[in-house]
Design a binder for these strands. Structure first.
Lengths: 172, 172
DNA sequence: ATCTCCTAGATGACTTGTCTACTAGCCGCG
DNA sequence: CGCGGCTAGTAGACAAGTCATCTAGGAGAT
């Protein structure tokens, strides 16, 4: 459900192919949702079946044909209905914290490397997000909101680093 | 995979029934993983089939019979192997941020109530976590690590509230 | 000339997780 | 006495997501 509404939302910004959508999930919306391309194509087909999107095959000039998907009026209505609906309850799922929770069964080296890896991954992502933020402009309200979701990610990554500092000092 | 290893980890702390496990997922480990009971029972059966756990039926005195699951040596080895293995890559998935990202399609009232709900939910969870934290003691290293995961949750919830303050001021 | 990468899309098998509903006995409340 | 709630477990249908594999043409590199 959420994925299909995110796709509708992206199609509302511009008509796109499944391939274009995949790139969005690997960049602009990747900080709050990810998607496998098989899943994207299946949901596009479903959106078309539901009448929320229309396909137009654009002959590729020196490239494969593009199946451009365009949101319909019904699709915009469905998007608006989702936005106004009860938010789905959040499922917390962090495999790293699971490892820490049972970290007593790990030797000192294992524990240290667990934290070190997390720190490196967090730093790398923070760098990526900050680069994205530097490139983005916040002209209208839509852009400001989109930027705010990125700031959310940045804030949490910084919190994670601070937490790592505290834990490593206390446990190690 | 992660769920089955978390269940192994919990069984390593004490022998348990599926029902006991479900309560753990609703309390002690709920801040980083949740599980449906149907899923828990299925994985327990699978762990037994793999030889990672053994069942003992304990006749209930004034209650239904309990299927107590006890971790085996092979189970402990599998748990240790998982802890030392490459961490699974994190999938970020936050339906609330998805709504914010497309929040421009929402009217002012809708946007305000979206943030208000998030704030209320975040505050409620923070209160729950802080209560849990107050009750917990950090005697040995295992307990300190388990507490650290709770502190992680608390830190992120506080960050979320701070972010909400900033966003509401800027956007609203 | 071949190889690899990129764009573009389709498909099947599989795993994981959720929802609903059912059985069944005990306890306490009113 | 009936009703709801708790303990304990089972079963089936579905939804969501992942992984691997396949087709196919063009561009650029070796």
């Amino acid at each position: 459900m959420v994925l299909s509404r995110i796709i509708l939302g992206l199609l509302a910004l511009a008509p796109m192919t499944g391939y274009d959508l995949k790139r969005h999930f690997d960049s602009t919306v990747g900080h709050f949702w990810s998607a496998d391309k098989a899943q994207i194509y299946r949901i596009l087909a479903q959106l078309v079946a539901e009448g929320y999107a229309e396909v137009e095959t654009v002959a590729g000039s020196g490239a494969p044909d593009r199946q451009e998907h365009r949101i319909t009026a019904a699709g915009r209505a469905a998007l608006a209905a989702w936005l106004a609906s009860e938010p789905e309850r959040q499922v917390e799922r962090d495999p790293f914290l699971a490892r820490v929770f049972f970290g007593a069964d790990l030797d000192d080296d294992g524990l240290r490397s667990l934290f070190a890896q997390r720190r490196a991954a967090t730093r790398a992502q923070l760098a990526r997000f900050e680069r994205m933020r530097a490139e983005a402009g916040a002209s209208d309200r839509g852009a400001r909101l989109r930027l705010a979701t990125l700031d959310n990610g940045i804030a949490h990554l910084r919190t994670e680093l601070a937490w790592l500092d505290a834990v490593e000092e206390e446990v190690a």
